[in-house]
Simulated scan of single mutants.
Amino acid sequence: MGQIAFWGIQHGLGVTSNTAALASIIGMDYQIRTLCSQPQWSDNTLESSFKKSINRGNPEFYNMSGTGLDGLERAVRAGKIERDTVKNNALFIERDRLDLLRGSEKSDKSQFDNANEIMRIIYNGAKEYYDLVLLDVHSGSNSPVTNTLLEDSDLIVVCVNQNIHVLDKFFKDKESLPKALLRKPHVLLVGQYDPESKYKVRNIANKYSYKGPILTLPYNTSFKDHLNDGDIKGFISRNRNISKNHENYQFIQDLRRNAKYILTEVGINTQVKMIERGAS
């Protein structure tokens, strides 16, 4: 069992799209019970990324209010969190392999921020059922919920891009980073990666004397279009078994490499859990 938090030093770094893409490929490629969730106040963009799958697979439950994080908060306050409680409040994306937990519908940010200990209980409860929990947490370090969940995570995926100002802020402004990054295992993921840029992985590592691992995920037009259409699962499904000369091949290969890396880091045996290619 492992919890992985996807985090960015600021908004606009593709944290949600990275979370959605990795959740999808894991749900397609591995026999692992995975939950993805976006514990943020007034933000349901992760849910929107899977809109088509949710509408097809959960037509009645999807329109029910009071489910997801808000429903689970009430269950925690009532002392009714059991092994299957989170599962029963989640929406399935890939049956028995990938679920999504709806975000909060609270209109008061302070109410959400003050529920950080309840969020901890919810996701600890999720790990009683799920093998893997993927969290798209709020960017920056000003959210109590984010700081709590980062501390509880087994791995933090730090999402950056090739913008020099973003890189400088991450590598040079240590005071602005969550304290969890000083203590928890973490890996850099450079999203919308351009291998022709001056700021390729090797040069980033040299410039900042960085010795840690750096993953990349290239920019892909079709992926972005499917993201906007709420059909991430459809994109992954249609491109799982493409040939090397296909325009999306490198994106899928890098996505698979990243998935294998983060799963291995949290102790999951990817060889044992891998589903045979072509199987559903």
Score class of each variant (00 low, 15 high):
Y210N: 01
E175L: 03
L188N: 02
D131L: 04
D173F: 10
H226E: 01
P144L: 07
L177I: 09
K169N: 15
P218Q: 06
V133S: 11
I242Y: 13
V166R: 01
R240T: 09
K179N: 14
F171E: 08
R202D: 15
A205C: 10
S243W: 03
S141T: 14
G230M: 02
I242G: 08
K179E: 15
N228A: 11
D152V: 00
K233E: 00
G234K: 02
Q162R: 09
R238Q: 13
P195K: 06
D194E: 13
F170A: 05
L215E: 05
P195D: 11
Y130E: 12
G234P: 06
N241P: 13
Y129M: 08
L188T: 06
D231K: 12
G140R: 03
L134E: 12
I236M: 15
I232L: 09
V133T: 10
A126H: 03
D152S: 07
L155W: 05
V145W: 02
P195M: 08
D136C: 00
K172F: 11
V187L: 12
G125T: 15
F235Y: 15
V145S: 01
N163T: 01
D229V: 05
N203D: 06
S141P: 12
I232A: 08
L181G: 02
I242T: 07
I232E: 13
K224H: 14
S141R: 12
T148C: 13
